[in-house]
Design a protein around this nucleic acid. Structure first.
Lengths: 226, 226
DNA sequence: CGCCACATTGAAGGCAGTCAAAGGTGGTGG
DNA sequence: CCACCACCTTTGACTGCCTTCAATGTGGCG
């Protein structure tokens, strides 16, 4: 795979010249991770940022009792850990490969050098971080204000955009298993299972294999706002 | 009050020359807000950022039932809403003056112009946003993993640094009333009151007037991590 | 076939939110 | 100075959502 082609795809770098892309590419290196292997751990010194070439990486925190909460799952084309890098100090969470993954890694100095030279890149990064801040604050709102059924409905509504239309309805493929989805929604597997069942009983969704079929998007939107 | 002096104090701008400070100062204007008045509302177009000259501003979201969750409280010397500005679109939350306040307001174009000219400023802003991201993700962790007593204990441990030593223990002055603290901690007044009482009964803290006296910081640290 | 991870379902218990009422506390005006 | 009011805080009783614990079901894989 050509790394340059991949880098160009990501929004952050899309406006850079080939020469600049070369510079970025030569400033980092590709690293491979097997499914389940750890990219970095909480507390480790944050000396670089990552870009997902292939696969999926889960970012999570660990509670005192070992229970984990998934903050984010990054797929191909996304950058992560750059915030920790800028903040300095250590990574505030764990990163683990959900599948066999290829990541591109930059040391801190390279990215900083790049930003110095290209202020418009900085503005793009600021915007991208701002979006992430926004999604985090939405999540804080959800967790403190809403109950599980509303959060689940909200998740499905969010994902509806990337679903696939079938004759039965909108089909969503879950990017993770249900326990992990539960963790992402701030709950546990059992509760998620019950909530899904209740949605099924109400005729809002159906389950097919590993996919969820949305049958009544409007109603889900309502629930997500209660 | 001299605005330039105030701007220089804030970390983001500390390394700029007087001339540059002048440029920033002339690109915005001072606005005054009475206690309880709204600085901006959720959904309003985000066309600028604010800097707190005097007073305190509360950032909060409103749930469907009108319940509010306080995301942040900004005091003198802090910048806010710049993330919304960069993300574009609308403000994702409400801002309200907790006291009579003086804010300095910049239109978007001015800040962007400044960043173009001064990449090191961009890096500082990236770092500052990264810190905020970190505190948000810590909050998400708290909300989904911990119970109220742990969150309250954690809050007091966090604030312990800015407390005042007395013969009784560390004295914390609350920057808001208890209902608002409850909202900040993702709970409600009644529950906060009960939790405080239980801490008092256990001899961990005392209440004096409008202040909390920490008598057993170690134990609080323990509780905050359960 | 048996193991293991994941998912579902049931029963029980607890934390925290809601509703309601009483007890401060500070500010205003008589 | 006191009465009154508005607002915040505390306390009590109750309810419910969700977690915990436990058992059973299911699919993939050696």
């Amino acid at each position: 795979m050509d790394i340059r082609e991949n880098l160009k795809k990501i929004d952050l770098f899309s406006q850079l010249s080939d020469l600049e892309i070369d510079e970025i590419a030569s400033g980092g290196k590709v690293k491979s991770y097997k499914k389940g292997s750890i990219v970095f751990t909480q507390g480790q010194e944050a000396i670089g940022a990552f870009f997902v070439l292939e696969g999926r990486v889960k970012i999570y925190k660990l509670g005192a009792d070992g229970k984990q909460h998934i903050l984010h799952i990054f797929g191909a084309g996304e950058i992560f850990a750059e915030a920790a890098m800028f903040a300095g100090g250590t990574y505030p969470a764990y990163a683990e490969a959900l599948q066999d993954s290829k990541l591109f890694y930059w040391a801190k100095a390279n990215l900083l050098y790049l930003i110095e030279k290209k202020p418009s890149l900085a503005i793009k990064m600021l915007a991208s971080q701002a979006m992430r801040l926004r999604s985090f604050s939405a999540k804080i709102e959800d967790l403190s204000l809403k109950e599980v059924s509303a959060r689940l409905a909200g998740y499905m509504v969010d994902q509806a955009g990337s679903g696939r239309k079938t004759d039965k309805g909108l089909e969503l493929k879950l990017p993770m298993n249900k326990s992990q989805l539960a963790s992402y929604l701030g709950t546990i597997g059992e509760t998620l299972s019950r909530t899904l069942t209740s949605f099924k009983n109400k005729g809002l969704i159906d389950e097919d294999n590993n996919s969820i079929v949305i049958k009544n998007l409007e109603k889900l939107k309502e629930i997500s706002q209660s």
